[in-house]
Amino acid sequence: MVPEPFEIVVKRRDTTDTWTFELEPRSGEPLQFAAGQFTMLSAGGAGEVPISISGDPDRPERLVHTVRAVGLATRAICDADPGRVLGVRGPFGTAWPVDEVRGMDVVIGAGGIGLAPLRPALMSLLARREGYGRLVLMYGGRSPDQLLYPDELADWADRGFEVLVTVDSAGPEWLGHVGVVTRLVRRAELDWTATAAMLCGPEVMMRFMVAALVDQGAQGENIYASMERNMQCGIGHCGHCQLGPTLVCRDGPVYCWSELAPWLAIREL
């Protein structure tokens, strides 16, 4: 359970408090992963944190992580520059159902940094574009300068994603949507009963997103969400990430919504 050394080869600032890192394994052995999985990431002795993998599953040579500096461990990671080595354990957890939803329309619903764990799914869907119906990204952020991957949003749009972006607040120079991300659902016209959704963002945002999707006619069993709990060991041993009858590090982070919904209705579960 000792972390494997990965060297930072690229560090890119996404927003005021968020950076994307490309890491190469010192061992030379690529970290194979499935879209949706996470690793336990650490810098020096500042503690480990679960961070979703943001790279392309078809290109595992570089491990890509988008990290927001919100605490001790994530600040230590975000302070690290190219050439520095980070510790990596994993990958852990369940995957987005990229293969299972073939043939359907797919909505990717992302809120804030929640786009990062969805990026591998997005790339997999685009790499197999012909296998799906309409692909729609609904991405909500706090403000235009807090949006992740702005260059890629345009690229994804060119390659067959309908990219809808909305922010909670903006100046008049912003030409995109302003408003909560759930309003994008009401505006989209999809064949909802044959639409799958993959959601990642703050839990409140996902709850309301699901409500909006179901109101439109989407089926709970076609909705998937990536959950956040206090994952510490990644291997189902430490107990911290319990979510009712499940362990998020083992049975999640990606869950089918219809299985999870009754549990999320319980406060402080």
Partner: peptide
């Protein structure tokens, strides 16, 4: 009502960074 509810969600500032710890 729909607009009011959406506005309330916006007020939550769910993408904010209220109490960081991890």
């Amino acid at each position: 009502l729909e607009r009011l509810q959406a506005t309330r969600l916006q007020l939550l500032d769910v993408y904010g960074n209220a109490r960081a710890s991890a």
